[in-house]
Write a protein that binds this DNA or RNA. Structure first.
Length: 411
RNA sequence: GCUCGCGUAGUGUAGCCCGGUCCAACACGCCUCCCUGUCACGGAGGAAACCACGGGUUCAAAUCCCGUCGCGAGCG
């Protein structure tokens, strides 16, 4: 059953960075790789043909969302995800474990995977005491859509309120029906605000779910990855890495809360990755800032998925450049006839669309804004990852890393 | 020419009848920031109107009275 094969072609001498190729039934993923998120079997606003042109090698879709709509059986009947969405390259499906968090604690606490719990300086109004810091981050304190038990996660559909139980068995069944090449074990992504006791309990449950996920897997033409959890607790991360590594997974993903800062995230990676099987791929879930990518690659990560390039492009036309992000809604771009970045080979810049025009499209909420901005950002990411790979192959990753960190820090 | 109605931030409106709680509210727009396995074209914040103009009544007027100007409708 050599449908999958991971070959490490280059290793960095000064870090744990490595470059390689992961072979799947739908083609190769050159690592380190950036994998865009297409939750609903679609990268918002961008057609598969354009994604290919941009150099995207794989996509990540979501079990929970596709299970609710259009339904796993519908997708299966229509030939599986690849045929359904007309994408013939590798697909990964997330197990739905993240939704246990994003529709649960994330909503209740108003936090993301990396806690941003320190409110920025309260505004100081003259002659008055500054307002007291809010008790909770903005957006928190809403009702959860989930209930987590040993059996699995009970979701109240965010679409129509109907109830759905996602268990490890169900998640794997759905993922096999959807037909992704790489599927993920059903896990619980814990909140950075969870207590240690809770994080530990959730971790142990996720481990039991990992075993159940493996047992539930029937098809050999899918690669199942295990997920390391443990929050920001060193011993829990180590325990998790040890445990997951003993199981016959095809690869690993690092998930869950990554602490309260980028520094925490670096530590978590440094603790866990050395414990993972060397010749199996490692996926860092949900991370995608350039500095984070470089730091994670240096610690041994092979690929990433992240909504940032697509979400930022869609929400406000935030667009990546080598010197930092541009927020196209800013007034200074109103008459800016330059492309997003001179010399950028993406379809948007190559076609000569100006910042002023893009700003207009964003302001007018024209769908084309989403397509053009997203295509640019994704091309930016694939180019960036190509440079990461080249740097590793050429033995100059250390310098490359330093350069990236310098750039991103002054942005 | 007469009668009636209207004139509040960029736009559209609320408040006016029953003066104070209006150094004026809401929506959209505008400006800035945030977003890391996408519930959500999401979240947070900000600037912006001396309430058409002049006079009067009153302790107090966007709110009441008079006049002027502008806009609209009707009548001639």
């Amino acid at each position: 059953m050599n449908n999958f094969f991971f070959r490490i072609t280059h290793t960095d001498k000064h870090s744990r960075a490595r470059a390689g190729v992961f072979r799947t039934p739908h083609g190769d993923i050159h690592t380190p790789a950036f994998i865009p998120v297409g939750t609903h079997a679609s990268v918002r606003g961008v057609a598969p043909s354009v994604l290919k042109q941009i150099g995207v090698e794989a996509l990540l879709a979501n079990t929970y969302h596709l299970m609710l709509r259009p339904g796993a059986d519908v997708v299966a009947k229509l030939g599986g995800l690849h045929e359904f969405m007309r994408w013939d390259r590798p697909i990964i499906t997330d197990s739905g474990g993240f939704q246990a968090f994003s529709l649960g604690a994330s909503i209740e606490h108003g936090v993301g995977k990396i806690a941003n719990i320190f409110p920025s300086e309260p505004p100081r109004s003259a002659g008055r005491l500054a307002a007291p810091p809010p008790q909770r981050p903005a957006g928190g304190n809403k009702k959860s859509f989930v209930r987590i038990t040993e059996k699995g996660v009970e979701f109240r559909s965010h679409l129509d309120g109907s109830k759905h139980l996602l268990t490890p068995e169900k998640s794997i069944e759905v993922q096999e029906k959807l037909g992704a090449d790489i599927i993920l074990a059903f896990d619980e992504c814990t909140s950075p605000l969870a207590t240690r006791a809770y994080t530990e309990r959730a971790l142990e449950r996720t481990h039991r779910w990992a075993v159940r996920s493996l047992t539930a897997k029937k098809r050999r033409d899918r690669a199942l990855f295990g997920i390391v959890q443990g929050g920001a607790y060193r011993d829990l991360r180590e325990k998790s890495a040890h445990f997951i590594t003993t199981l016959p997974f095809s690869g690993f993903a690092i998930g869950g809360s990554l602490g309260k800062s980028k520094r925490d995230m670096h530590d978590i990676l440094a603790w866990t990755i050395p414990l993972l099987t060397e010749n199996k791929p490692r996926h860092l879930l949900g991370i995608g800032d350039r500095d984070d990518i470089v730091e994670a690659v240096a610690r041994g990560i092979d690929w990433f998925d992240c909504v940032a390039p697509t979400r930022l492009a869609r929400r406000k036309g935030t667009v990546f450049t080598s010197t930092g992000n541009l927020n196209l809604t800013q007034a200074r771009f109103k008459k800016d006839r330059r492309p997003i970045e001179a010399g950028c080979p993406c379809p948007t810049c190559a076609a000569g669309f100006s910042r002023a025009y893009l700003r207009h499209l964003v302001a007018a909420q024209e769908p084309l804004a989403v397509e053009l901005a997203t295509a640019h950002n994704l091309r930016f990411m694939t180019s960036f990852m190509a440079r990461v790979r080249e740097a590793i192959a050429a033995g100059r990753f250390a310098a490359f890393r330093k350069q990236v960190l310098r750039q991103t820090s002054r942005v």
